[in-house]
Computed example of a mutant assay.
Amino acid sequence: MTWNQQLVKVNNKSLVLHTIKEQAPISRADISQHLGLTKGTVSSLVNELLEEKICYESGPGESSGGRRPVMLLFNERAGYSIGIDLGVNYILGVLTDLTGNIVSEKMKHVNNMDYEKTILTIKEIIQFLLNSSPNSHYGVVGVGIAVPGIVNKDGDNILLAPNLGWENINLKQDIEKEYSLPVVIDNEANAGAYGEKRFGSGKEYENLIYLSAGIGIGVGFILNNELYRGADGFSGEMGHMIIEINGKECRCGSTGCWELYASEQALLHQAKYLQLSIKSEEISLESLVELAKENEEIISLFDQIGRYLGIGITNIINTFNPQQIIIGNRLALAKELLLKPIVEVIERHSLRHNQTNLKINFAELTNYSAALGVSAFVIEFFLKSDLHEKHKKIPIG
């Protein structure tokens, strides 16, 4: 087989697998008709997928006049994927099957993001998820880690994560060395956007923008159904969009950055100046949401954060004219307090034409968007690779 023939075969096999994954249960004849491939080609490729345990046959389907066809289904339990959302004050890990269903999870709240301490916590979570993985043909197929910072194009170097205090960190290499598993590192806003597009509130939209509002702010873009990364992979750092020209100093080295006024960090900082019934070290987003039920000062504080969020979102809307804005990460926990001021600012300041078909939603996946998104990156890498027969199970325990 020539190189071109091999490439065509790999592409056709990928198309067949995608069709089974998205349209199952489906027959070989329907795949042939849907893709415009010959029945012989489809049958040969399906047989390979059956041998690789990536799909399986079920009982016969509806007859259209002849023999009832054997139906094909995607085997979501052929392997499992690990997705890690590395927040500034938490680390969330999920184990999913090959369709993104969460099988196991572990969350750790952290106060110190020193790299050596953080990587120990990441490894602890990965090991827990490996230990909780059910038996399967391929075992765990990889680990994805979503990071709040700038990651280079190859995903092997965290160039800058100002809210973590990290610069030029090779997390990918450190994890691969420990577990001998494929590792995907990506920006957490990109992962969150992809998670919501695949599994959450963005499924019906081709042009959406995901706002990751936690300790910092990041933005992920799905444009024309594709994740947009920018020329060098650095798009979406809109938390460092300047909204106050002579504003506060930011860890990134600039001043007046959006995330200094519209993030969980800004909320917690301002809350410490209020006369609250709890100690300052016990102030958290969750406690403030609870106290807001009976405290007008805290309601006003959330209103202020919401207005600042609305200012930045308005700039994004006027720039990109998206169909949907999704607000995710930690601040989504306060959606009842934030939605009204956000919408008021958008309605007042964004261009009318951009508002006509615009949807403002909070993340359907709540705080799981990034973990599920980066887990999906791992799964796609695995399914597109031609490694099913050579993939070795990783020892657990």
Results as ranks from 00 to 15, higher is better:
Gly144Pro: 08
Val143Cys: 07
Ala161Asn: 04
Val183Thr: 10
Val147Trp: 01
Tyr115Cys: 00
Gly155Leu: 09
Ile125Phe: 04
Leu129Gly: 00
Asn152Cys: 12
Asn135Gln: 14
Glu167Thr: 10
Ile150Ser: 05
Leu181Met: 14
Gln173Arg: 14
Val151Ser: 03
Lys153Tyr: 07
Gly155Val: 00
Tyr138Val: 06
Met113Asn: 14
Lys172Gln: 12
Asp154Lys: 14
Val141Leu: 05
Val151Met: 02
Glu124Lys: 04
Phe128Ile: 10
Thr118Cys: 10
Asn170Glu: 15
Val183Trp: 06
Asn131Ala: 15
Gly165Met: 01
Val147Arg: 01
Leu130Trp: 06
Glu124Arg: 04
Pro162Trp: 04
Pro134Arg: 03
Ile169Phe: 00
Pro162Asn: 11
Val151Lys: 00
His137Trp: 11
Ser180Trp: 09
Asn187Gly: 02
Asn168His: 06
Ile122Cys: 06
Gln127Lys: 15
Asp186Gly: 05
Ile122Pro: 02
Gly144Glu: 03
Asn157Ala: 02
Trp166Pro: 02
Ser133Asp: 05
Lys153Ile: 13
Thr118Gly: 08
Lys177Arg: 14
Lys177Thr: 11
Val141Ile: 12
Lys117Ala: 13
Ile125Gly: 04
Lys177His: 13
Pro162Met: 07
Lys108Ser: 11
Ala146Met: 12
Val141Thr: 09
Val184Asn: 04
Glu176Gly: 10
Ile119Asp: 08
Glu176Thr: 12
Asn170Lys: 15
Pro148Glu: 01
Ala161Cys: 04
Gly165Tyr: 00
Asn131Met: 11
Leu160Ser: 13
Pro162Ser: 09
Pro182Phe: 07
Ile119His: 05
Ser180Ala: 15
Gly142Asn: 08
Leu159Thr: 13
Gly139Asn: 13
Asn111Ile: 07
Leu181Ile: 10
Ala146Pro: 09
